[in-house]
Design a protein around this nucleic acid. Structure first.
Lengths: 197, 197
DNA sequence: CAAAAAACATACTAGTTAGTATGTTTTTTG
DNA sequence: CAAAAAACATACTAACTAGTATGTTTTTTG
């Protein structure tokens, strides 16, 4: 039971790529088996149906990535405000995997699926919660060690910052150029400075 | 040529409702003609194809609404910072048409369509530009009349604020409750106050 | 009011979709 | 190494999709 795991992972990765670019609804099973070179029998051996595969993408691919690229950099940071800015800068400008014209994979799925699919909603909610709670913790830590003003509401700030991130991804899709991220990042920096003690 | 216009408008309005709730790709022509009680012949008399109808929804329905509900309140305002906050509050909390679980119609279409459909991209870009430019003007006006600090970068602030709006709509879809808007709105208020002279 | 154009109605088609039925091959295990 | 289970392969189906072909009805206009 080792090759089978590889097949499953291969399906998830290729399917994720297609869905990131084309959207979930418009990526067909036939698309997926064509690009994976896996037959339909193999696909349905590993997944009960398309939605189960979609949920698996969130839980088995996105969650670990989130932990690595989104959560790790925050937790190890000395100064929380700089860390938040640096994280956003990295995600928007440096990250080679996320493409400006395709936006944020998690945000895409949220937009497309959450209104009418409870399973996707649950999985994506957990994903988001994890990021949110981490950022709240980091800010609270900053309040304790004196880097952040003590009257700052950590949850409010987190919601505000994360909303900005998702929203600027929307602009990116419209403009199809990372240029559009720059004024956002500048103002994010200004805003974060107002929280400093 | 009066009844025909009514038929066309009826199609656009019902189709928009369906698309707002279900998404563009997953709303079929058959769905639309079923809820409008209009036959397929009538539909294709008014629209060359599905995409032409989609673009018409943006240009003939969304643009006028934007002008009324999003742009008007900004232009007539005395204090720009309060006006921006009030606009966001109204859109998120008071507005009876926009539902928290379905998000922002323009953002939904942007997420779903812009990556691969140039016509949708263009129409949605124009829509967004109109709102952006208005907000920039309002802030610049505030700088002139002394309500806003003169070192504030109006475009940066606009991008930052509008990103927040779109992003918090994402959270709303996940949480399916307007409660989630409140911490965002509080922090928006805090942020806007830092721009005051 | 009659001819012409506009507006709508019905029946159909070719392609695509998720999913299944029924196999065969490969791997594991006693 | 043989039986059993896991992993994969092929061919099919029923439902749905956007769009069309070919009508009929309604409205406009000279």
């Amino acid at each position: 039971m080792k090759k089978a795991e590889a097949t499953r992972l291969n399906i998830l990765e290729k399917a994720f790529e297609l869905i990131y670019v084309k959207g979930y609804q418009t990526t067909s099973i036939d698309d997926i088996i064509a690009t994976t070179q896996v037959t339909k029998g193999a696909f349905y051996y590993h997944f009960k149906n398309k939605d189960e595969m979609g949920i698996a993408i969130i839980n088995d691919l996105l969650k670990p990535t989130l932990t690595g690229s989104f959560i790790g950099p925050l937790q190890t940071a000395a100064d929380p405000l700089t860390a938040i800015y640096q994280l956003m800068y990295n995600l928007l400008i440096e990250n080679k995997f996320l493409k400006v014209e395709y936006g944020c994979p998690a945000a895409n799925l949220t937009h497309e699926m959450t209104s009418w699919n409870a399973d996707f909603n649950k999985a994506l909610n957990e994903l988001t919660q994890q990021w949110t709670e981490t950022m709240i913790d980091v800010i609270e830590r900053g309040k304790t060690n004196g880097a952040v003003r003590s009257d700052v509401n950590a949850r409010q700030v987190t919601m505000f910052v994360m909303s900005g991130y998702w929203g600027i991804r929307n602009f990116g899709k419209l403009e199809r150029s990372k240029e559009i991220y720059l004024p956002y990042l500048e103002e994010l920096k200004n805003y974060l400075e107002t929280l400093r003690r």
